[in-house]
């Protein structure tokens, strides 16, 4: 797991995303244990309270749960997390889509931009640094 301290995304959110991604990519799955707060904090060089905050929220979202004596475990299947992910994507895109619509850009034109980004030609993807997530 690689954390960017300078990223515009808060560190605890980066941790949350990485955990979800690990499930989506099939590296961990339902009922697998994940590192303890202190292990992960040491591992990725961040403040343990920040890891704790990420885990607390993941627990609230029912993506992980903590079993006394065992640790934190994945509480959701890949499909369920994918569904969540898409829902989040929808939320993130609501504003820009509205904005493009208002500006008179067509659906096909927007899809064209997405297509271009998807194929990695042009655009700077997620590494743009200074932009708002």
């Amino acid at each position: 797991m690689k954390i960017e301290l300078r990223s515009p995304l808060p560190v605890y959110k980066q941790i949350k995303i990485k955990v979800k991604e690990a499930v989506l990519q099939g590296r961990i799955s339902l009922d697998d244990t994940i590192p303890s707060i202190r292990e992960l904090a040491r591992d990725i060089n961040v403040n343990p309270n920040t890891v704790a905050r990420a885990y607390r929220e993941l627990e609230k979202e029912k993506i992980i749960f903590s079993r006394p004596g065992v640790g934190y475990m994945i509480n959701m299947s890949r499909d369920q997390i994918k569904e969540r992910f898409l829902k989040e994507l929808e939320n993130e895109l609501t504003r820009p889509v509205k904005r493009f619509k208002k500006a008179g850009i067509s659906k096909d034109e927007v899809l064209g931009v997405i297509e271009k980004l998807w194929n990695g030609s042009g655009g700077e993807g997620s590494g743009s640094g200074g932009q708002v997530p």
Binding site: L5, R6, R38, A41, R42, N45, V46, N47, P48, N49, T50
Partner: peptide
């Protein structure tokens, strides 16, 4: 310093070096 708080202690510190603060402070 980071391990210190894992053990349950609290840390207050002053620094000029922002990149360090980013790494260990909450």
């Amino acid at each position: 310093i980071r391990n210190t708080i894992i053990e349950g202690s609290t840390v207050l510190y002053t620094s000029h070096i922002i990149s360090e603060v980013e790494r260990i402070a909450d």
